[in-house]
Amino acid sequence: MTLDDGRPAPAPRRHLAVPLGAEADHRRLERALVAAGWTHCGAGDWAVALRSPDGLTAARISPFDPAGPYTAALYREAAHTGQVPRLYEHRRLAGGGDLQLLEWLEPVAADEAADFHRALTAREPQVAALADVVRRVHERGLREQPWFAPKVDENPDNIMRTADGRLVAADLFSADGPRLYATVLDDPDLVAATIPEHERRFMTELPMTNTGAWSPETLAAMRNGLAAADARC
């Protein structure tokens, strides 16, 4: 539903409605949602998604996502444009995980998504206000996070449609995964020095659905290297 001026109507009040303590991590949260009737509906490299029993809400759950707070900031700061998903709740999880509770979104055709991305990059009038917020929040991430991805993600899958027909940009920010995980192997002391252990405890538990899972040998090398680096701190 939208207002007469095209802005989305105020979001209904939604929350998880499952008991979740301060020490809940991504595993505990996922189990709690499944037990409450939520169903798995997707997975990427950084997160999995579950759909609420009524079909109106999605939970994006990541074991480790330094960019999560910036994505949530984009959704809040650009809400007036109607071109980002409604964010009902954002919560950091124990061990560096991230929860975003969003309105349910549907995919769009690749050409339609590409057109939206092109308009955003060119700051065309219909998306100029959104482009300004994207730039501002992305620059903030680059200043504050040493592993922030240098470019906005232009994956067509990040442009989606809401139940009331709006095209929205979702999940535009991420950590620079290739650089970060190469450094975990090559210089784990640098990673340990720049990301506190309590914020990267589960960084080797990403779904990696699109890129492909790490080999057992690579996982062991990353975990052992970080453990040794933590012991030296």
Score class of each variant (00 low, 15 high):
G96Y: 10
G96F: 13
P66M: 13
V134H: 01
V168C: 06
P146R: 02
M160Y: 01
Q83M: 15
R143D: 11
N155W: 03
R123L: 11
R166Y: 04
R92Y: 03
W147G: 12
R92A: 15
A79P: 04
R123H: 11
A131F: 03
R91Q: 09
V134D: 04
A113P: 11
L142H: 06
P85W: 02
F173K: 07
D176K: 01
K151R: 13
A128H: 10
L102V: 12
H138S: 07
V168L: 06
V127W: 14
G95N: 04
L74I: 05
P150Y: 05
N158W: 02
P85V: 03
A122M: 04
E144W: 10
K151C: 12
P146H: 00
G165P: 06
Y88R: 05
R123Y: 01
R76S: 03
A163W: 06
V133Y: 03
L93N: 06
V134N: 00
F64G: 07
P150W: 05
V127H: 04
A169T: 04
P156A: 12
L120I: 04
E106L: 09
A122D: 08
D157P: 00
T162W: 01
Y75L: 07
G68L: 09
A175M: 12
I159E: 13
K151D: 14
Q100L: 15
L99H: 03
V134S: 07
P85I: 04
W104C: 14
I159L: 06
P107Q: 10
Y88Q: 01
V134T: 04
